[in-house]
Nucleic acid binder design. Structure first.
Length: 168
DNA sequence: CCCTGATTCGC
DNA sequence: GCGAATCAGG
């Protein structure tokens, strides 16, 4: 199916209404969400009401061009000027209230316990941070970290040890 | 693994 | 112009 005036108009309407590309594609029928997105871009209405995202400032490295059959002459020769463009990133000193000694990934030093505290995908993720001399961990965490495969008797202790060992 | 939009490029 | 393939995220 092609892009008739009616279909384009409907596309515009639905897109402005905030429907996702896949939803629009489903409603139009005969097109994929890729087709919809492609058309949206070609129509120049990529931006929407409440994008909720930075939409733009996200810098993406040029991806290495998917290779196909024809080698062809290089279309783009000049690499994008990326070095000088970026404004000096003023570090947003964020205050993290944690237990005494806790360290963020930024403040974690050489001899600080690297035992993870919290969800690594969360932004309040920290490390134990206490004094660690030899091992990457403080004495307490080193003990649970380097527990051999021997805890098998006590069910409760076994469960705990197993769950803890997942983080090593 | 589901979804989102963004981008590239052969057709 | 079109849209599949692919990307980078949530």
């Amino acid at each position: 199916m092609g892009w008739t005036d009616e279909r384009v108009e409907l596309l515009k309407k639905l897109w402005q209404d905030g429907l996702s590309a896949s939803q629009i594609a489903k409603q139009l029928g005969g097109v994929t969400r890729n087709a919809v997105i492609g058309k949206v871009h070609r129509l120049g209405l990529s931006g929407r009401a409440a994008p909720s995202k930075p939409a733009r400032p996200v810098f993406k490295a040029p991806r290495p061009a998917r290779q196909a059959a024809a080698p062809a002459a290089p279309r783009r020769i000049a690499p994008p000027p990326l070095a000088a463009a970026a404004p000096a990133p003023q570090p947003p000193v964020r205050y993290v209230e944690e237990a005494p000694g806790a360290a963020t990934v930024l403040t974690l030093g050489a001899h600080m316990c690297k035992w993870p505290i919290g969800d690594p995908s969360s932004d309040d993720f920290t490390f134990c941070g206490r004094r660690a001399s030899e091992s990457p961990y403080c004495v307490e965490h080193a003990r649970v970290a380097y527990q051999p495969a021997q805890a098998k008797k006590r069910s409760g202790a076994n469960e705990l040890a197993r769950s803890l060992r997942r983080y090593i």
